[in-house]
Design a protein around this nucleic acid. Structure first.
Lengths: 219, 219
DNA sequence: GTCTATAGATGGATAGAC
DNA sequence: GTCTATCCATCTATAGAC
């Protein structure tokens, strides 16, 4: 009975998993709020209530931790987008209209960003990754465009008359609209408009974005 | 004749100004290429061919240097935009159409970004400032919206039927399109499109952006 | 496995010689 | 004013005690 191989491993396993998860979540929140370079391993372990060595023990290094958060969140986001695109395709007999395609791309990150949504920090993390990421993350962002290929193909199918070059450029413009939804930019807009704009109503914002982007695509 | 007050100050003044300018230009280029946090004072002084203490002597600190570059470049950019908006207003008897307003906003940063343009690094510097800037820079970006107010007013005048709230949101979308014109994003688009998109032709890109944004504003 | 103590490296800033 | 040498703070990563 004292043979360690016969001991129930659950207690230590769960404790270890809990520590790892605490580090993961603390890191994601701090990175999303303050930026990658402005958060130290000390900040993370203090926030998570674990000891300083945990980051290296569980993830190998600060950069590896950053990369693991990045991979998991982008994977989840793109899976959700793919699912919505798939559903739109099924609804429209293989070729959904532009608006439905764009909604599959806009919807998930926008809904994640809703105040009080449990994925709000994930949304900000991903936005930060694009401009502040490590060389490794940027390499992935630059080369891993497989999820975008499906959207580009769907858009070409919806607008077969449009030269492919134009579809790609318009997709680029649309990406810019999405990436610009940062806290700081909302603040600025709120200040400029004298409080007229309220980003809290996600569905209204989504509708506005779709109106704008759809018109641009139909030009 | 040995009184220092009577000496011609030009030699030392010019040498000092040359050192300061060398630091300024080296810093702008390195910051634009590699990001603010990835460039050290040592990198800058080595690139400029001056001694390590020059940054602190001429600018006070690394952050103050960063801020001075930021202030000068944004000031120049917004002055150019204001001039173009002013000219468009004069051309159209006080109320230019949406496309001309947008061109005054898009044109200057896009033309700065043209390959081989002498302001190409300035354009990238400004784009980086938005997402990587210091707290002080972000404070300015958030509060100093005076140049945007003129554009918002012009757009409201061009679309008096549109609720002001909509004008502000669409302006926000348009800003996202402009801010997304980074080297990394062009690379990604180039990769996605299999080489179909060529950002080198600035006037063609400007026309594409105006087609898209104008349609979005007219929706 | 957890935690402390510390190594090892880097970078911003500055004193002081010239 | 310019430049070297150095201080001092900060950070990641790890060795070693428990």
């Amino acid at each position: 009975m004292t043979d360690p191989l016969l001991q129930d491993p659950h207690d230590s396993d769960e404790a270890q998993a809990a520590t790892k998860a605490a580090v993961f979540n603390a890191a994601e929140r701090l990175f999303a709020l303050h930026g990658f370079q402005n958060v130290s391993v000390r900040d993370i372990t203090a926030e998570a209530g674990v000891n300083l060595a945990s980051v290296n023990y569980h993830f190998g290094s600060k950069d590896a931790l950053l990369f693991e958060i990045f991979r998991r969140r982008t994977s989840e986001l793109n899976r959700e987008r793919a699912r919505m695109l798939h559903e739109a395709t099924a609804r429209h007999a293989g070729s959904p209209p532009v608006r439905d395609i764009l909604e599959a791309y806009f919807g998930p990150p926008l809904r994640w960003g809703t105040p009080d949504h449990d994925r709000r920090v994930s949304a900000q993390f991903i936005i930060r990754a694009r401009s502040e990421g490590t060389a490794e993350m940027r390499e992935v962002l630059r080369n891993d465009v497989s999820h975008l290929e499906r959207f580009a193909a769907a858009l070409m199918s919806a607008r077969p008359d449009l030269p492919k070059e134009d579809v790609y450029w318009r997709l680029h413009f649309v990406l810019g609209m999405v990436h610009n939804n940062r806290f700081a930019e909302f603040d600025r807009l709120h200040h400029l408009s004298g409080g007229l704009t309220r980003e809290g109503d996600t569905e209204a914002l989504l509708a506005r974005m779709l109106d704008f982007a759809e018109a641009g695509f139909m030009a």
